[in-house]
Simulated assay, not measured.
Amino acid sequence: MKTWNVVLGVDVSKKTVDICWSERKLFVHIDNNSEGFGKFKKWCKTNLIDLRETFIVLEYTGGYEYRFIQFCESQSIAYRRVPGLEIKQSMGMIRGKSDRADAFRIGQYGEDKIKRLEPSKLLDNKILELKTLLSFRKRLVRESAGYQSSVGERKHMYEVSNQDMIVRISNEKRDANSEYIKELESRIMELIKSNEQMYLNYRIITSIKGIGAVNGWMTIAYTENFTSFPDARHYAVYVGVIPFEHTSGTSKKGRRRTSNLAQKELKQELNQAAKTAMQHDPEIRAYAERKMQNKEYGLVLNNIKFKLILRMFSLVKRGEMYVENYRRSA
């Protein structure tokens, strides 16, 4: 494992970047643009920081960090993105908050954990665009559902017709969103088809009963085409379908339950996939009927979600389409 001479903590916002070398209590505040990155390089030179021997730790911010990451990749600087909650929970009791203090704490986290932190993989621009398109599609779908709900409530409360101004405008916006959603979905499929391995994996996982197009797109995006998780279990923990033990000594003996720390959007989509699989997959339907004789519906549904994840990873690893092999017993 490579030894890093310098570990820098970086706190990124929309317009600025705060960078701290906590070991020497050095700090620089720059703009989140090319001019600011030039200032960062000068600061490193002044403080005798060799960027080839430097490891940068920064939080996921939902997009603000991508410009800085692109700079790091252009300069061959090693970096690692870490969930903010992981950093926060590792620091114990914290009082006060500022961008400078956050950068210092991120730097401290990096220095404490450097032995187990591996550099992040290079950004895949197609995966990045896929995530962005899926996020915007989700916004439009929710917006359309809101318009549909408003129309239903208004008609129920005031007994108005489709010519009512609010009803008409809501319907027009919903119809427009439907066209935009189709356009987005077309671009999503275009992106997936542009990569042979990505398209193959998409076809494999959507051959599984219950896994439709949206689940397929999201799985490809968030597993980064099945490269960012070592196995199905790690992905299942990320999604939030693996139960964990909840006991303490002899006084607390709680039943195993899933963690609230999960990617809930993926979990919600898998929820619908599991329900569909229970209806249309004979093997899973038989499994559910057998388990529900002595287990709660929610627990059985969660087990089915895990089964679907196991199937996806297994089939992708083998490069095979799903084949139904269920045989009804005599």
Rank of each mutant, 00 (worst) to 15 (best):
H246M: 10
D164L: 09
V316H: 10
R327L: 13
G38M: 08
E159M: 12
V323S: 14
K155L: 05
A330E: 13
E269P: 08
T219G: 05
I49S: 01
Q272I: 11
E143K: 15
K267M: 01
L184K: 12
A101S: 11
A103N: 00
I211E: 01
N215S: 11
E265K: 15
V6I: 11
L128R: 14
V167I: 13
E53W: 02
N162E: 11
K14V: 03
A262V: 06
Y297S: 10
F68R: 05
S314P: 12
E143S: 15
E296G: 11
R154K: 13
T223H: 04
N325M: 12
G249S: 01
Y326E: 07
E143V: 11
E59Q: 03
R139G: 12
V167T: 12
Y60K: 07
L301N: 03
G249M: 00
A286D: 02
L266I: 05
T276P: 02
V300W: 02
V6G: 02
D124W: 10
Y147E: 09
A176G: 15
V167R: 11
Y287G: 03
D50T: 01
I69N: 04
C72Q: 06
M165F: 14
R174F: 09
G110I: 02
A277I: 00
G298V: 10
R328G: 11
V141G: 08
G96N: 02
M198I: 10
T276H: 03
R327I: 14
T227G: 12
S22I: 08
S194T: 09
T3D: 05
D99Y: 01
F229W: 05
E23T: 14
R80F: 02
M91A: 15
K14Y: 01
F226T: 03
K113P: 06
V141P: 05
L184V: 13
R100I: 04
G212Q: 00
